[in-house]
């Protein structure tokens, strides 16, 4: 039940993130939307991991480890994107 609820939430977040990415022109909002999309994908992984409970473990550790890696890489990508947006804003500020 828990896995299904959060799996479906993950599916919803992918759609919401995709919508924000395409429908909002503000760069910082697009970065946020991209992170929502990523969070949704991670949750789908989490649901699959929870369903894979076996051998005394409450969840499959392999998808969990992949998500852990993914969160850190997504953060690195976010910082780079934010730095690009700020630099762009600065460049447009000075004619």
């Amino acid at each position: 039940m828990t896995a299904t609820v959060f799996g479906l939430l993950g599916a919803a977040l992918v759609g919401i993130g995709l919508f924000g990415l395409l429908a909002r022109p503000e760069p910082l909002l697009r970065i946020l939307a991209f992170n929502l999309l990523g969070g949704g994908v991670f949750l789908v992984f989490g649901a699959v991991a929870r369903r894979g409970a076996a051998a005394g473990l409450a969840a499959d550790p392999v998808p969990q480890a992949i998500v852990l890696t993914g969160i850190v890489v997504a953060f690195a990508a976010t910082t780079l994107a934010v730095a690009l947006v700020l630099r762009l804003a600065e460049a447009e500020d000075r004619p």
């Binding site: 799996g7 479906l8 599916a11 649901a47 894979g52 076996a54 969840a59 392999v62």
Partner: peptide, 15 residues
């Protein structure tokens, strides 16, 4: 997600 196989495949025993 609703159509995921049951029982779910898992790498937990190997780990």
């Amino acid at each position: 997600i609703l159509a995921l196989p049951d029982p779910a495949p898992s790498l937990a025993p190997m780990v």
